[in-house]
Amino acid sequence: MSSIDSFAGKQCSLGVEYMGAGLGLRFPHIYEILSQKPKINWLEIHICNFINGGLNQQLLYELSEHYPLSFHGVSLNLGGPEPIDVAYLQRLKQLTNELQPKLVSEHACFTSFDGRSYHDLLPVPYTQKSVEHFCRRIEQVQETIGRPILIENLSRYVQYSENEFSEAEFLSQLCQRTGCGLLLDLTNAYVNDKNLGISIDAFIDALPHQFIKEIHLAGFSTHDEWLIDTHSAEIPQEIWNLLELYLDRYHNVSVLIERDNNIPSFQELYNECCHAQSILDKYPS
């Protein structure tokens, strides 16, 4: 089978439905959402915060009765050299089976090295070896949980001299070889453009768009003339503009609003979510 045939076959297996604009769930808003049940198309949760059990997981079960969910992970350590944490993976499988999230996603990064957890999305070199390394581990995850996952592009402040590919080429290979989908974070791509000079136009053009099933939007901050992907501010106009440019060319991609620091009132985030939906509504589905 040629790589193109394989690519097409993998595409069919993704089967991700369009959900419109969704909201990243954050702790301060859980009880408000559960008590008032506002109209939200879907909620994305940081699954690592819920996977262990305890009260937090009880709340997740309750949320799942009212909203479609997306599981977004930051701890699978797909790029790390140590074996994937099997206990974590088994719990992810269990929750995926029980709550049937619409999407499961992770990052193209490593988070742990030599027994230490960095709790940060650390970049990897884009080489043939790293492609193989990621593919093996993505396949392990997908086989365990029984469905394709989405892989998100990173905001990066560093590039390795070992790089053999661009990030877009790297991500494309992951899709082609494993059938995983892509989560395109437009803010990350924008930050990389401004900080590292990686053209956002070239990056987006080089991605396999049939594999992009979700878009992330967030705000950022500025430190010493560097844009830092802090998710700490409202989504700036240039990011909304990027979304419109993207949707001009590609349709039917679910969009998520993220805020992780300086978390505002629920209403403020809800308004951003509604704004994203109003943009999506301008384009044919």
Partner: peptide, 18 residues
């Protein structure tokens, strides 16, 4: 050093603040 291009400080600050 020369093995990388860019700015390591955001990662270092993250670790300190974590």
């Amino acid at each position: 050093d020369g093995d990388f291009q860019g700015n390591i400080k955001p990662y270092q600050i993250n670790q300190r603040m974590l």
